Amino acid sequence: MNASINSSSYPQLASSSGFTLIELMVTIAVLAIIVSIAAPNISTQLANQRVKSTTAILNNALKEARTESVIRRQPLVLSYDNNSDDSGIIEIKTAATINTYSYDAKSIIKPPQATITFEPSKRVDAAVTYTICDSNSVGSPRQIMVSAVANITSQLGGTC
């Protein structure tokens, strides 16, 4: 009696252990569909995050330059350089460099001029609008406006 129970249960165990080739192929196909839907959204989110980060860095640098020019009672120049391979550079300087910021090399800052001078009288040499874009064109650009009286505002928008 024991031999008949053991011989009938063995084929059932062998047939239910593991996956068939069809089951594996269907699972891989479903995963491929999910990844193809999610991949464009992830790249857009990464591009938008780089733009937000660069906007925050530039905004902080502009505010620091404005404040430092009043505290030091001398004009300060803020300049940037997009041409670096690893990261872009924003510098605040008089005769010597006061502070340096770096931002992602995939972010691009587009103003009509590469420098802006903050005066101790809480003014700038010329009003400027910076547009921050990502090298991946799917990212949403942002703008930072510096008025003639050194008022700094940020908003979503602009063209790259």
Results as ranks from 00 to 15, higher is better:
Asn2Leu: 13
Asn2Thr: 02
Ala3Arg: 07
Ser4Met: 02
Ser4Ile: 03
Ile5Leu: 13
Ile5Gly: 01
Asn6Tyr: 10
Asn6Glu: 06
Ser9Asp: 03
Tyr10Pro: 01
Leu13His: 01
Ala14Glu: 02
Ala14Pro: 02
Ser15Gly: 01
Ser16Tyr: 09
Ser17Thr: 02
Gly18Glu: 05
Thr20Ser: 14
Leu24Trp: 04
Thr27Gln: 13
Val30Phe: 14
Leu31Lys: 06
Ile34Ala: 14
Ile34His: 03
Ile34Ser: 13
Val35Leu: 15
Ile37Ala: 00
Ala38Leu: 14
Gln45His: 14
Asn48Arg: 13
Arg50Lys: 14
Val51Cys: 12
Lys52Gln: 15
Ser53Thr: 15
Asn59Thr: 13
Asn59Phe: 15
Asn60Trp: 00
Leu62Val: 09
Lys63Met: 06
Ala65Leu: 11
Ala65Tyr: 07
Ile71Lys: 08
Arg73Asp: 11
Arg73Glu: 13
Pro75Glu: 10
Val77Gly: 00
Ser79Ala: 11
Ser79Leu: 05
Asp81Trp: 07
Asp81Arg: 02
Asp86Tyr: 01
Ile89Tyr: 01
Ile90Val: 14
Ile90Ala: 06
Lys93Trp: 03
Lys93Glu: 10
Thr94Pro: 01
Ala95Phe: 13
Thr97Asp: 08
Thr97Trp: 10
Asn99Gly: 00
Asn99Asp: 06
Thr100Asp: 00
Tyr103Thr: 05
Asp104Leu: 06
Ser107Pro: 10
Ile109Phe: 01
Lys110Cys: 04
Ala114Thr: 10
Ala114Pro: 00
Thr117Val: 13
Phe118Leu: 08
Glu119Ser: 14
Glu119Lys: 10
Pro120Gln: 07
Arg123Ala: 11
Ala127Cys: 04
Thr131His: 03
Ile132Glu: 03
Ile132Lys: 03
Cys133Asp: 04
Ser135Asn: 08
Ser135Leu: 12
Ser137Asn: 05
Ser137Val: 03
Ser140Asn: 11
Ser140Cys: 03
Pro141Leu: 11
Arg142Gln: 14
Arg142Asp: 02
Arg142Ser: 09
Gln143His: 07
Ile144Asp: 02
Ile144Phe: 02
Met145Asn: 12
Ala148Asn: 11
Ala150Asp: 05
Ile152Pro: 12
Ile152Thr: 03
Thr153Asp: 12
Ser154His: 01
Ser154Met: 14
Gln155Leu: 08
Gly157Pro: 15
Gly158Asn: 09
Gly158Gln: 08
Thr159Asn: 12
Cys160Ile: 05
